[in-house]
């Protein structure tokens, strides 16, 4: 089983609902976030294109944060979800340095925090809060090892990219383009 997310940049309007839904769902303190939205404009008026991307931890299959963690606080659980055990984390920030996606931050309580793919929801068979709330339904979550899952089908059908593939982390967030 390999959990992954595919996000359709053709539909995303950059509204940041994913950010606020994550914040309330996971009690992320105000001033911090586990996901965020990027806007990238290219071209010259009036020949322009615009891409919005909802970004977060890529739950990499080859996760540098897990490898560099001295206390094994950063670890991988079933389905490839990368988590941080808050009790084990000593706040050394090595993982923050190692992450090419800048997806981690130090929670005001001292431990490193980041996206959990809403594992508490996924375990109950629900989608992560961001996927669940998105008004444009531009986010798909599921098991890419299951060729019949919606996400596997959409990744077969559509063109996609991942972020910073050259970092060799084997990320699991896909952007449909």
């Amino acid at each position: 089983m390999r959990y992954a997310m595919a996000i359709d940049t053709k539909k995303c309007v950059g509204c940041s609902d994913c950010v606020v839904a994550c914040q309330t769902e996971n009690n992320v303190p105000i001033g911090y976030c586990r996901d965020w939205v990027i806007e990238a404009t290219t071209g010259t008026y009036p020949d322009l294109s615009l891409e919005f991307r909802s970004e977060r931890c890529n739950h990499c299959s080859n996760a540098p944060c897990v490898r560099c963690c001295p206390t094994e606080a950063s670890h991988v659980v079933n389905g490839g979800i990368v988590l941080v055990d808050h009790n084990e984390c000593i706040g050394c920030k090595a993982c923050i340095e190692s992450c090419p996606y800048d997806a981690r931050f130090v929670h005001p309580e001292g431990y490193v925090d980041k996206c959990t793919f809403c594992i508490h929801r996924v375990e109950k068979g629900e989608n992560p809060a961001c996927v669940n709330v998105c008004p444009t339904k531009c986010m798909y979550f599921g098991d890419t090892d299951d060729s019949n899952s919606e996400i596997s089908k959409i990744l077969k059908k559509r063109k996609w990219k991942t972020l910073i593939p050259e970092a060799g982390t084997d990320p699991n967030i896909y952007y449909l383009i």
Binding site: G14, S16, V19, N27, P29, I30, G31, Y32, C33, W36, V37, I38, E39, A40, E55, F105, P108
Partner: peptide, 17 residues
């Protein structure tokens, strides 16, 4: 760039509900 549009930067003040 994210700070500019979503403005929820890591440097922000912790203002827990």
């Amino acid at each position: 760039e994210f700070i500019k549009i979503s403005s929820a930067g890591l440097g922000g003040l912790a203002l827990s509900n």
